[in-house]
Amino acid sequence: MDSGPHISGRRVPMTRSTQLLEQWNRGIADMLSALDQESFAPRLLQSVTRLIHFDFLMVFAYRGAGRPLALGDTLPDPQRQVVINAYCAAPYVLDPFFQRVAAGVQSGCYRLRDIAPDRFRQSEYFRTHYSLTGIREEVGFYFPLGDATGVLSLARWEASPGLGRSDMDLLEALAPAISGLCARHWASVAAPASLTRPRLRDAAQVNAAYTEFGAKQLSDRERQIVSLILQGHSTGSVAHLLDISAGTVKVHRKNIYRKLGLSTQAELFAAFLSFVG
């Protein structure tokens, strides 16, 4: 059995790095051959999993703060309803990946747990949406789509192991090629006729939700705190971000609930999503 490539008639044993490079080059060839075809997303997943295991992928296009457009995925229908359809209905506004898009990020590779707020797993977004998806690990690759931004998410279910630092190092090395191919494949989405306002909610409508939610009852500072709480920031994190004391945050939080006629964070989350919808 051949152990590696030949140089001047000599067989050269393949190192681990050479094996990875050979496998990735095969993946690049497969993805290039599938550009502009429905098989591109499955080929992309297959190419990455030759190097690092992921259970599925999903791709969204965002224009500003507008409702995302699902571009593709490799999910079965039952999971798609929870992971994608329910997400696009409203919870996306509190997604850490979306928050980066809203902040202007158009490139890079990020693991969700690295960019999520400190109390993400205690947030209402996690409790009422993300925990229901069954996702354990998620890595997002950002790529430009004209005046929109695409995000490819590679994900693992809860039954799969977590990602290690070496896994992320490799994914970050692959990111330029993955993002470039995604931008090329979904380039048509950037055309005005493809990414229309009826398909993506007007960004101003969602931006207004942040500034107008509770506007008649809450002060500007209280609305800032509401936004951070819903994103999953703890009292300490809110205090740090706004440069105020934790005690002041607690007083504001108590006043927010009183003014809005609410008792819990769950009720706050439901009221905000209803306002956005």
Rank of each mutant, 00 (worst) to 15 (best):
D2L: 13
G180V: 08
I84A: 06
R253C: 09
F120W: 02
G162L: 05
P117Y: 01
Y87T: 08
G4M: 13
W157K: 01
T74G: 12
Q81K: 12
A177T: 15
R199W: 13
R80F: 02
S263I: 03
Q23Y: 09
K250P: 07
T149I: 12
L112D: 09
C182K: 00
R223Q: 11
L228F: 12
E172W: 05
S245P: 12
I7T: 15
S263T: 13
S274N: 13
P76I: 07
G261I: 01
D167G: 02
L171P: 10
F54S: 02
Q265P: 06
R136V: 02
G66L: 07
T128H: 09
R111P: 10
E22M: 11
Q106E: 12
V251F: 10
S131Y: 05
R16H: 12
G164N: 07
P198N: 10
V48N: 00
R43W: 01
T18S: 14
S237M: 14
R199V: 15
W186H: 14
Y130W: 00
A271Q: 02
S219V: 07
V12T: 12
S227D: 13
S3W: 12
R67F: 05
S107H: 12
Q231W: 02
G162C: 05
D167L: 04
H233L: 13
G232M: 03
A177F: 10
G27V: 10
A29Q: 11
K259M: 09
Q217N: 07
E158T: 06
P91M: 04
H240C: 15
Y142V: 10
C88Y: 00
G236H: 01
V59I: 14
W24T: 07
E22N: 03
F97I: 10
E222I: 07
P144F: 01
S245E: 04
L195S: 03
A177P: 04
G261C: 08
H6E: 15
Q23M: 14
L181E: 04
T18M: 15
S166Y: 09
D77N: 08
L241N: 04
L51H: 07
P96F: 06
L174M: 01
A70G: 10
Q224Y: 01
A175K: 03
I225H: 02
N85V: 10
S153T: 03
F120S: 02
I84S: 09
T211S: 06
A215G: 06
